[in-house]
């Protein structure tokens, strides 16, 4: 019966693991709802500021901000990589890093150098191993990240852009398509591309290049502040969206783990019953054999 006992302990330990994974699944499900609420709550601001910046890009401002001018030569490219702080969320981070590397390889082939800013400890760990030039890192954002937490890291990248140490800036994060699907996206932040996805509805009364705002107090100070705010809000949006993705991915990963554990338990129970049956059969045949010998 030694084999049977071993199998029984194994079943017991898998059952414990299954309990843990199913608890984690439920926790992730409830956190996902919160993260989704957070994501939805910050969407209006991100959308409106995108509209405003799209208008500015359409206008013919007296002052062309540095962020709006395409630079001829791209010598250095920056990436803000938004990852999770914790693991056990399936292929979420791995897929994201693959997307970064693929995009970065294209720039490297064109002779550009790369700088990375890691948000979330997984990205930090990855770039330490991968060997990218990590210029800023921030982790421990928690479940409800604040804009204030991000300002520092974003500022590092913006300062680098202002000084001409970066010629292009991307943000990389997971887009929340639905609970089952998260898609890694690489979005260009700087320079502001003409197609930043403002509202299309006022296409017909768009008068590109023929008008300008009145500015109060003056265009330079205002646009400086507004565009920095815009970048921050885009990064913040990326972070909260990635947060919702994390919980969704974890929920799915834990659901799969729970199902797999169930499968394993079924298989092992089958093996256990067979072993038990074999032992009984053997015992009976021994007794019968013994009786016949007498």
């Amino acid at each position: 019966m030694a084999a049977a006992k071993e199998i029984r302990t194994q079943i017991g330990s898998i059952k414990n693991t299954q309990k843990i994974t199913s608890a984690m699944e439920m926790v992730a499900a409830s956190k996902m709802r919160k993260a989704q609420d957070l994501m939805k709550a910050s969407q209006p601001y991100a959308k409106q500021i995108r509209n405003v910046v799209a208008h500015i890009a359409d206008a013919n401002p007296e002052y062309r901000h540095d962020y709006m001018v395409e630079r001829d030569e791209v010598k250095r490219v920056g990436y803000i990589v938004v990852s999770t702080d914790r693991g056990l969320c399936g292929g979420l981070n791995v897929n994201l890093f693959k997307a970064v590397i693929k995009n970065a390889a294209q720039w490297r082939d064109q002779g550009a150098e790369l700088d990375f800013c890691a948000l979330g400890s997984k990205a930090g760990g990855f770039f330490k191993k991968y060997g990218g030039n990590l210029v800023a890192a921030k982790s421990g954002l928690g479940e409800s990240p604040k804009v204030d937490d991000l300002i520092g890291s974003v500022k590092v990248m913006l300062d680098a852009y202002d000084d001409g140490r970066l010629d292009r800036l991307f943000v990389v994060y997971n887009e929340f398509v639905n609970t089952m699907t998260q898609k890694p996206v690489v979005r260009q932040l700087l320079p502001l591309s003409t197609d930043i996805g403002g509202d299309e509805q006022d296409e017909e009364n768009a008068r590109p290049g023929s008008w300008d705002y009145l500015y109060e107090p003056d265009a330079k100070a205002l646009l400086d502040n507004l565009l920095v705010r815009f970048i921050e809000s885009q990064v913040y949006q990326a972070v909260v969206e990635n947060g919702a993705c994390e919980q969704a991915a974890r929920m799915i990963a834990m659901k799969n783990a729970t199902d797999n554990a169930g499968g394993l338990i079924d298989d092992l129970e089958m093996v256990y019953n067979k072993a038990r049956q074999a032992a009984i059969t053997q015992e009976i045949s021994e007794i019968v054999g013994g009786a016949a010998a007498v």
């Binding site: 208008h55 500015i56 705002y213 009145l214 109060e216 100070a221």
Partner: peptide, 19 residues
């Protein structure tokens, strides 16, 4: 309340951007 004082906005106002 804008940076340079209070502003009243009525329909058809010229494009304006203020802090």
């Amino acid at each position: 309340s804008g940076q340079m004082g209070d502003l009243g906005i009525l329909p058809g106002h010229a494009p304006l951007l203020t802090e």
